[in-house]
Design a protein around this nucleic acid. Structure first.
Lengths: 356, 356
DNA sequence: CTGAAAGCGCTTACAG
DNA sequence: CTGAAAGCGCTTACAG
């Protein structure tokens, strides 16, 4: 491992250009023999500029390597083509994929994208305030409790769009938000396991995004609904985290119970941990136990057994959230945008009929 | 899946505050009965302010909910506490983990972090220019060809730090950069496999970051060195991508060759694909074939067989790169910073002695 | 210790 | 079609 600091070539002789400080609108004006006002018109593509002077100005811009100062533009015009996303995580697959969609959408729209991770130690109000006055608007990923808490504290006057877990039926979030219908997806996945002959389905949960004041987590809720619809009393869910280690620990207990034949997991990492625990306990998947994950992380189709899981379009969710924010920014209004694709149950090797 | 747009509460009655536009330095000055100049002194913690007036100003700041306008500050002071990172990817583990380190470091330093993904369709010079004049400096992730190409085109006068693959011994990059010694790590991993009795080691490569003009990729180079040192002629490397699918395809061919008993992979995703291909071919790991990955992605310890791999401290690399940039920004100079930890070979189930 | 001036680099009306 | 003025919200010297 190594770090190096190389003394950069100090000054002089940069072929195309080599000034000390960037050319301003006035430098261009002088070079073109016009007022800086006219330069402003040219760079803003104003209609009323004589063709010839436009050309002169453009030539000057070219030769001076002029680029409009983004800070000055923002201050003078009040237009900030930038958004900043607030999230508690950037590495977990669902978050990273959402971030990717957000970045693509903002890039496509010519916006700058800032990222600010919120931690449990943060003073939420301070964090939000500084993120808010950095850019033109906020996008908050409210998949987990911290993100959801941050969202709750965003002042009403700050343009903001959120990504959240599916709200309870009939309820809409207080703020513009997008979500995948993971409640229904969990219901379908559970129903699928029941249809395979399993008498019940156990659930290894991801941490809840809301406190007690709100309804239950949608994935857990969908799972419960499916069981109840089949006349089955839901067993107690387990799970104490987001990662494979948490899945492993929950899986160890489930593996020890011979009655357990089907397990739904709140995400694919959890499922991998459960698979591992079952393996260690000598229980075969899917012959002895079926496992279904959530999210369809890129490697989930390549582990052995490959993982049956619910595919969620995080990327599309990111695009949609950006669209929601942008329409606020542009119109001052709030309008729905395109709807991301429905979740899909991807059947692979880790689930199968109950052994008789 | 659903999207909703909720009309926000228009105005009025926000308990703590409820103005239309943010309070400025002048509003505060007026409320405190001082000049806006003095307000500036207070918010910048200037020493020469009478205790009593300071208190008056602070009270006014509090009651008006004043926050200094970041844009105006940047324009007037010339100080931009922000960096933007240029990368071709944000989701692959190595990139996501690096980004995480970068975000942590910039947050700790009170900097704003922008992310700009570069694509093959981008005009690199334009992309770099716009990223550069957005923030105070650039950090480019040059792990792959696109990132490395972007780095090459960053103008000399732009403050910039890079994360790169290990440069050839004795050579230092043109710009301030950090790297992990993956050449040595690949050498060690290969030597380990040879010491286990394998007659040779095959390599499934990640795509090269440099064109032909530069020396070979460090991981491939380390692998070759180890083989040559043992008197073994390196076989032809395979691999045509970064993901598990690419690993699967390369693995399919290797699996068909009974002479293959040890495989080093350029990353863990590739290794997962190779594992899968071996499984499909009925070759057991590690009894028939040993597999070693690279990066130690979070789930690599939970797949079965768990993956022997090289752990790289991407997070530390991110911190170091930020430090490198910051020292340029602060001092105008370039200085080395803390050195990330050395790579570690993490032994797990996927590697073992050659079966005799 | 505190105020009046000039300026950061641009834009938005206002004149001509 | 083009220029002179005022201003975005702050800071940096300069006076007192």
């Amino acid at each position: 491992m190594s770090v190096t600091g190389h003394t950069s070539s100090d000054s002089a002789a940069t072929p195309p250009q080599g000034q000390q400080k960037a050319a301003s609108i006035r430098d261009v004006a002088q070079a073109a023999g016009v007022s800086y006002q006219t330069v402003s018109r040219v760079i803003n593509a104003h209609p009323n500029v004589k063709e010839e002077t436009r050309k002169r100005v453009e030539a000057a811009i070219q030769s001076l390597g002029f680029r409009r100062n983004a800070t000055a533009f923002a201050l003078a015009s009040g237009v900030t083509r930038s958004v900043t996303v607030l999230t508690s995580n950037t590495v977990l697959y669902g978050y990273a994929a959402t971030l990717q969609g957000l970045e693509e959408a903002s890039r496509a729209a010519g916006y700058t994208l800032g990222v600010r991770v919120v931690t449990p130690e943060d003073d939420l109000d301070r964090t939000i305030a500084s993120a808010a006055d950095t850019g033109g608007g906020l996008i908050v990923i409210g998949f987990d409790r911290l993100g959801a808490a941050a969202l709750d504290r965003v002042p009403a006057h700050v343009p903001c769009a959120a990504l959240v877990e599916a709200p309870p039926p009939g309820r809409t979030p207080d703020r513009p938000a997008v979500w995948a219908d993971d409640r229904e997806a969990a219901r379908a996945a559970t129903a699928h396991l029941l249809s395979l002959g399993h008498e019940t389905v156990h659930y290894v949960a991801i941490p809840a995004s809301a406190g007690t004041r709100q309804a239950v987590a949608p994935r857990a809720e969908g799972w419960r609904q499916a069981l109840r619809a089949a006349g089955v009393t839901p067993p107690r869910p387990s799970g104490k985290g987001w990662d494979a280690q948490a899945g492993y620990e929950a899986g160890k207990k489930l593996a020890a119970n011979p009655d357990v034949t089907a397990i739904l997991c709140g995400n694919d990492d959890l499922a991998l941990g459960v698979l591992r625990a079952l393996h260690h306990a000598g229980r075969r998947v899917p012959q002895d136990v079926s496992v279904i994950g959530f999210d369809d992380a890129p490697h989930s189709g390549f582990v052995t057994p490959s993982l049956t899981t619910v595919r969620l379009d995080f990327n599309g969710l990111g695009w949609a959230a950006f669209g929601l924010l942008r329409s606020q920014l542009d119109s001052g209004q709030q309008a729905p945008t395109s709807v991301p694709a429905e979740p899909t149950l991807v059947l692979r090797e880790s689930s199968g009929p109950r052994a008789v």
